[in-house]
């Protein structure tokens, strides 16, 4: 499968996750958000950038628990819970947040 972002075709797996995480750019997030009817706000971008930074550093996608702990630490304690995450990404962490961030599905979530 693939998606087209600004005229460039990018390869994805069968569930629509980018095959190569280095293919990601903000346009990918806009395109996928549009398909999922998510209107992107600064709060979405905060989480997406945090997720990508985590992946760049540790080469894995974090679990929800690890991510919420990290959000609490870096973006504010009131945001560090799954409720906040689900408000931003209604279909859940793996299906929405990771996909929009251009990351593979989380480990232990196959």
């Amino acid at each position: 499968m693939s998606i087209v972002v600004k005229g460039i075709t990018l390869e994805t797996d069968k569930d629509g996750y980018l095959t190569n995480i280095n293919d990601w750019n903000e346009g990918v997030t806009y395109t996928l958000a549009n398909e999922e009817s998510i209107i992107l706000r600064p709060e979405h971008w905060e989480v997406i950038h945090l997720l990508r930074d985590f992946y760049q550093e540790y080469k894995i996608t974090p679990t929800v628990r690890v991510l919420t702990k990290m959000i609490g630490g870096e973006l504010g304690e009131e945001k560090g819970n799954t409720k906040y995450l689900y408000e931003l990404f209604p279909k859940g962490f793996a299906k929405h947040a990771c996909k929009l961030a251009g990351l593979p599905k989380p480990t232990g979530c196959h």
């Binding site: 550093e57 540790y58 080469k59 974090p62 690890v66 702990k69």
Partner: peptide
């Protein structure tokens, strides 16, 4: 690099 994540887990 993933070994560094063990403490976070």
């Amino acid at each position: 690099p993933t070994y560094n994540a063990l403490s976070l887990y």
